[in-house]
Simulated assay, not measured.
Amino acid sequence: MPAEITTPTTAVLGLGAMGLPMADRLAGAFPVQAFDVFEERRALAVRGGATPAATPADAVRGADVVVIAVRDQEQLESCLFGGGAVEHGAAESLRDGAVVVVTSTVGVDAVQDVAARLAAQGVSLVDAPVSGGAVRAGTGDLLIMAGADEAALDAARPVLSRLGSTLHIVGPRVGDGQIMKTVNQLLCGIHTAAAAESLALARALGIDLDRAVDVLGQGAAASFMLADRGPRMAQQYEVTDDGTGGPELRSRLDIIRKDMNIVVSLAKKAGVATSVAAAADQLYQLAISQGLAAEDDSALVTLLSPRTTG
């Protein structure tokens, strides 16, 4: 049974938009070993105080708590059990009694399957998807939605407390966190799509977008996604012929589409009609078909009101 360790040796697997600031945040308090398939991402983690590892197996050797921040189910499985670009998965080296914290949105079935496979070797899993974005990840201000048994949560609590200002224990089961995050993403996906539509309309009618974001943010139409994505949507129209002038890539469009696919699939299983979410999902799919998959998700606004270059 895992026990709480005040200063746990921690591994972070996945150093993308969320994983890197989380690694930096954790390295300010605990020994951190970090892995990513890209060497340049590992080098950035070193700047933040982490020790780099060439494989997930190397990163988790001796770790008490392992934080996983990957894109999807496929990356989660390869990170733990090998495959694809990963030769030695973390499961090779996880010690008996270690706790794995999955912060990614991968769906209920995926996290439950992984938890069962890890339990067979004496490793517990905390289902703890996060919300708040990269900036809040770096300052320890994330919202964490956790599902796990009490012993696993206690062991992971120092790490969770370092990463999040708000920790909600959604339920005692692995998968409860994924359920809550899916509900969260339903709103996030709809709000982002709605923000894109409203700003595309404002632009078409001749309203300055920075002013529109400011005005909308002070009334009943305000939302976190409008406040966060709105300024970047305005910047999408500043892109020039050489590709400069647009917003920094902070949240890929194919990630939010992946999350919306989970929303629609889970709602279908539950027998709940989510027609607005389904419409937003189709809008993201259309954007991907137009070559925007790797763009910041604020680029959705350009699908509705194309940007001009010059």
Rank of each mutant, 00 (worst) to 15 (best):
A234R: 12
A63P: 12
L44V: 06
E77V: 02
H88T: 04
L118G: 03
S289Y: 06
A200D: 10
S131I: 04
L266M: 05
A85Q: 14
D228P: 01
L76V: 03
D208F: 07
K269V: 10
A202G: 10
A148W: 01
V170N: 08
R252C: 08
F224L: 13
V263C: 08
I255C: 01
V32M: 00
A11P: 00
S289G: 08
S131R: 10
G219P: 04
L304I: 07
M233N: 01
E40C: 11
D214M: 07
M180V: 13
N184G: 14
V111L: 14
V65S: 08
P172E: 10
G246F: 12
R71P: 02
N261I: 03
A54C: 15
V239C: 12
A53K: 02
S104D: 09
D109N: 12
V101M: 05
D210N: 06
A278H: 04
A277M: 09
A204L: 15
A221I: 00
L286N: 06
V183P: 15
D241N: 10
V272W: 06
Q73T: 14
Q73H: 11
R229Q: 12
V100R: 00
C188T: 11
G147N: 09
T244A: 15
G140C: 14
A69V: 08
D127R: 08
T9C: 07
S289C: 04
L118W: 03
M233V: 11
E74N: 00
A27P: 01
Q185T: 02
A293V: 09
L142G: 08
R136D: 07
V60F: 09
G133D: 10
A116H: 08
I190F: 03
D109H: 00
S289I: 01
D208S: 10
A85F: 11
G132L: 02
I262E: 06
G291W: 14
D154M: 00
A69N: 10
P158T: 00
L80P: 05
S124A: 15
R157I: 01
A204M: 14
S223L: 02
G97N: 14
H191Q: 05
D254T: 15
T103R: 08
L125P: 00
L201R: 00
S104E: 13
A196N: 06
D208W: 02
A200E: 00
D210A: 07
P172W: 04
D154E: 10
S161I: 04
V111A: 04
I207P: 03
P129A: 14
P31D: 04
G189L: 11
L20F: 05
T182P: 02
S104A: 11
P172L: 13
A204C: 13
G16H: 07
A146W: 01
P2C: 02
Q290V: 09
D281R: 11
A115C: 09
T51V: 14
S131Y: 01
A27G: 12
D214R: 08
A212G: 04
A116M: 13
A45M: 03
E87H: 06
D176A: 05
F38L: 13
G140H: 08
R252M: 14
T240K: 12
S131K: 05
A221H: 08
A120C: 02
L76C: 02
R136S: 07
R157A: 10
I179R: 11
R173T: 05
L142V: 15
V70Y: 07
E77A: 13
V213E: 12
E77I: 13
V66G: 09
